[in-house]
């Protein structure tokens, strides 16, 4: 029983990061129809930026804020320079553009920062907490709480603010949205900035646990993509469900079955789920336009 609890807590910590990644995918997909394979680079930039700002002597909250704002700016620039000019391009072209962006950002980070692995101390110390025979790092609570807060704040944003509703309207029907006077270009920029910031938040929170380096983005992007697709692309709740499910499943497989094949189980699950439910667990049904 203590083991199960231990595995679940590991899985929820990792799953919370996947959920934030998947949320980033979802926001950009809703705004632009693009699956952004550079999403993992935002997490890397958040972590690396914070690590270097702390090393330069800044207090942790300021360092984190700077890293998040800087990453958001990168997200806005990515939209302006690479995604917006390719509007209407087929899915394969968009995949290549965002993978190109990921390769570019990784190369730039290797130059701008360095090629070493970095980490900074957990925000509430490093002494493990004990809970019914299981142990938990205080930073894990930060990750879970951070993810919960982000999802809650975003829900409020989408349902209670005019700007948030404009984002949803644009996601549903860009043409209609622009007809009722919504500045869809600004909404695109906002979505990319927001998505990048969410990625950076995940990076800031998780670096004390997982560490970071200039080349960690691609693996993160793949996990986040898998989580987003599992939950159903375009649905924030699906992102949450997909992320947590994937994280817990990996931990349980590593604990009870085989640590070598723990990543395999998530991909087998994705193929099975998609074969039965082609829109993912919580995805919306779409009809083909003829």
């Amino acid at each position: 029983m203590a083991d199960l609890l231990q595995f679940l807590m590991s899985g929820l910590t990792v799953g919370a990061v996947y959920a934030l990644l998947a949320l980033g995918f979802t926001i950009i997909f809703n705004a632009s129809g693009v699956v952004n394979f550079a999403q993992g680079e935002f997490v890397m930039l958040g972590g690396m930026g914070t690590a270097f700002a702390i090393a330069a002597g800044l207090p942790v909250p300021l360092a984190a804020l700077l890293a998040i704002l800087g990453t958001a700016a990168v997200g806005v620039a990515l939209n302006r320079l690479a995604i917006a000019p390719a509007r209407g391009a087929p899915v394969v072209s968009l995949i290549i553009i965002t993978i190109g962006a990921a390769i570019f950002l990784q190369g730039a980070a290797g130059l701008l920062f360095d090629k070493q692995i970095h980490r900074y101390p957990g925000f509430s110390g490093e002494a493990p907490l004990r809970l019914a025979g299981a142990t938990l790092l205080p930073q894990s609570l930060w990750v879970m709480a951070g993810a919960a807060l982000t999802f809650a704040a975003l829900w409020l944003f989408f349902t209670r603010t005019l700007t948030g509703k404009a984002v949803l309207a644009t996601a549903n029907n860009p043409l209609a949205a622009s007809l009722v006077g919504i500045n869809t270009k600004a909404i695109m920029a906002l979505s990319f900035g927001l998505s990048a910031a969410i990625g950076a938040v995940a990076g800031v929170l998780v670096t004390p646990i997982t560490m970071t380096a200039y080349n960690t983005g691609v693996a993160l992007a793949l996990s986040g993509f898998a989580a987003a697709m599992l939950g159903g692309l375009g649905n924030p709740l699906g992102a949450l469900a997909g992320g947590l499910l994937l994280g817990v499943l990996e931990a349980l497989t590593a604990g009870y079955v085989s640590s070598q094949y723990k990543d395999a189980v998530s991909f087998i699950l994705i193929i099975l789920v998609l074969a039965l439910m082609p829109q993912g667990l919580l995805g919306r049904k779409t009809t083909d336009r003829v």
């Binding site: 692309l233 990543d263 991909f267 087998i268 994705i270 998609l274 074969a275 993912g280």
Partner: peptide
Amino acid sequence: VGKPILRLHGYYLGVATLGLGILISMVLSN
């Protein structure tokens, strides 16, 4: 594998084929 997954479209087909490739490389590596 193609029979079930080719019903998928766009990114969904992308992730299913991605998973297939990763599974194969994982077996080769492990």
